[in-house]
């Protein structure tokens, strides 16, 4: 589904990603685990096109996309839920969903726009109740549900989620993760970045551990769980990995 070879991203003198290579299987949930500043967000932004890498290739469905603009990647089915609950906070919940839908769907699909938005309200009734409210006035959890709903309305084949649990109450995190499981069952490939490794492990099939722009561990959930219990993993979080 997605293959990255030797990806380098530099912010001026800072090397944010130092030759990352990953392979994402179709229909699976892949976790990217790492501490703050390890390069998780940079990696997801390079996949969605917000950042153009300095070096390396990104293949999506066997086509190189590393130089394609964001809008082109969106059309190909890549949806990016950015870190920090990004929303159009000065517009209503309903308008956010309209914007989430309109520019990423074909003309044919647009005929059913309101029906599909109504389905979101049925899935998350709280969003339906607050549809005329400004998105910025929703609680953190409601905002996250809205953001993910906006991403889903584009019918993505590859969904990138950057720390979806950040700052959310455990009960809301459960709701978000349950929804991701449902999406996986619908055949969506998901890459989720998390600082909280234990959370990601709950739903992921495979994972990569990132530290200071390098991959320092990869494997299936069992392997990562065993790694988590070891000193090695805790060292990753304190920035002293010896891999």
């Amino acid at each position: 589904m997605l293959k990255i070879n030797g990806l380098h991203v530099n912010y001026g003198p800072i090397n944010a990603l130092k030759g990352i290579s990953i392979d994402i299987a179709e229909g699976k949930i892949t976790a990217i685990i790492g501490a703050n500043g390890s390069g998780k967000s940079t990696m997801l932004s390079a996949i969605s096109g917000l950042i153009i890498p300095d070096q390396g290739e990104i293949y999506y469905k066997d086509t190189p996309i590393q130089t394609k603009p964001v809008e082109e990647r969106v059309k190909r089915g890549i949806a990016h839920v950015m870190e920090g609950r990004r929303l159009f906070k000065d517009q209503s919940v309903h308008d956010n969903l309209l914007l989430g839908f309109y520019f990423r769907n074909s003309k044919e699909n647009k005929k059913n726009m309101l029906k599909q938005i109504t389905e979101v309200y049925e899935r998350f009734p709280i969003l339906g109740q607050k549809k005329h409210q400004l998105a910025g006035t929703l609680s953190g959890g409601q905002q996250q549900l809205l953001i993910i709903s906006m991403a889903i309305l584009s019918k993505p084949r590859l969904l990138l989620l950057d720390e979806p649990s950040l700052g959310l109450a455990p009960i809301v995190v459960d709701q978000v993760y349950q929804y991701l499981d449902e999406l996986k069952a619908m055949g969506v490939t998901i890459i989720v970045s998390e600082q909280m490794a234990a959370l990601a492990m709950r739903i992921a099939d495979f994972g990569y551990v990132l530290e200071r722009g390098k991959i320092v561990g990869k494997g299936d959930v069992q392997y990562l769980k065993s790694m988590m219990d070891s000193d090695e993993m805790s060292a990753v979080y304190f920035g002293e990995a010896k891999v």
């Binding site: 949806a79 309209l98 914007l99």
Partner: peptide
């Protein structure tokens, strides 16, 4: 609405497919 969206957050607007 897209114009207001770009005003609010151009990068987020881009990932929503807005040019």
């Amino acid at each position: 609405k897209a114009m207001k969206a770009v005003a609010h957050d151009p990068n987020f607007a881009r990932v929503m497919g807005i040019k």
